[in-house]
Nucleic acid binder design. Structure first.
Length: 273
DNA sequence: AACAGCACCTGTAGGC
DNA sequence: TGCCTACAGGTGCTGT
């Protein structure tokens, strides 16, 4: 389940791998992978020379020297690989072939991933919030919140901040000592600052570790990340907190599993008691 | 109009 | 062993 750090890792590798190459053919093995007109997608990409690969939130952007721009969203199980294993072949959804004979494979077991053509780079993904890699940017977004929705749900809202998913939302809230059900608009200035300083740290650390591999995420070279070795709460329900020894709890918030330490992450009402 | 809930999908894990 | 169910969760749509 690639989030910002995983996508960033993929983008860096992908850029090295395909920059300067020219696409000679696009094969859609599962056409619904492409949002919008399939024929136009293939037509515009054929002959495209890759100028660069970028990231915006959890979206991978590929730009051609002529300005052609398309995005890849991996959703849960998607991956882009330079070589395809026999096990992956039955989940191959799209194949890009380059003029030098190499290829790029979009593999996605659950068929949730999406490829999409945009008129230009500036028009892509218009509803995404800012990148949460700088404390000042995050703080501005947090200060604007007027909703009573749980802070956990708000961190997953891509229009508020782009790129945070379930793993890093839970990890950031642990680092901030904040209960995931805390109403977003109830955060005080000190709490906003704490969360704003912690989110970029958690994401940057994970980027340095080339992401978190739990189930499906792989780099372009089909390698695992290492951040899963450093998770404090995500996926640790019933295990003891590294900080205080309490048992990590798992609750559902808007249908999404949320992991937290009931002792390190108190609700506001409990803190005042 | 904010917000909740579900559809999209399939592999995997656990229970019996 | 094999069948069944629950679960994984990002996004976009629908309904309230």
């Amino acid at each position: 389940m690639p989030e910002l750090p995983e996508v960033e890792t993929i983008v860096r590798q992908l850029c090295r791998q395909i920059k300067g190459k020219t696409i000679t053919s696009v094969r859609l093995l599962w056409p619904r992978t492409v949002t919008g007109c399939k024929a136009e997608f293939c037509r515009r990409l054929r002959g495209m020379t890759v100028a660069g690969v970028s990231r915006r939130g959890k979206y991978i952007g590929v730009e051609g020297v002529d300005g052609t721009f398309f995005t890849v969203h991996l959703r849960m199980t998607g991956k882009l690989v330079g070589e395809i294993s026999s096990a992956d072949r039955k989940h191959l959804r799209t194949q890009f072939t380059f003029s030098d004979g190499t290829a790029l494979y979009f593999v996605d077991a659950r068929k949730f991933g999406r490829l999409r053509l945009w008129t230009c780079r500036g028009q892509a993904c218009p509803s995404l919030g800012p990148e949460p890699l700088r404390p000042a940017v995050v703080l501005t977004s947090l200060r604007r919140l007027k909703t009573r929705r749980p802070i956990k749900s708000v961190l997953l809202d891509q229009t508020v901040l782009a790129g945070i998913g379930n793993i890093y939302a839970d990890e950031a809230l642990f680092q901030a000592g904040m209960h995931p059900l805390t109403p977003a608009a109830s955060l005080g200035e000190a709490q906003q600052q704490r969360l704003a300083s912690v989110i970029p740290k958690v994401l940057r650390q994970a980027i340095l570790r080339r992401g978190t591999t739990l189930r499906n995420y792989r780099t372009v070279a089909d390698e695992s990340g290492e951040n899963q070795e450093h998770l404090n709460v995500y996926g640790r329900a019933g295990e003891s907190c590294f900080q205080c020894g309490a048992s990590i709890e798992k609750i559902l918030i808007n249908g999404r599993s949320s992991h937290y330490c009931p002792s390190c992450q108190k609700k506001m009402s409990d803190v005042r008691r």
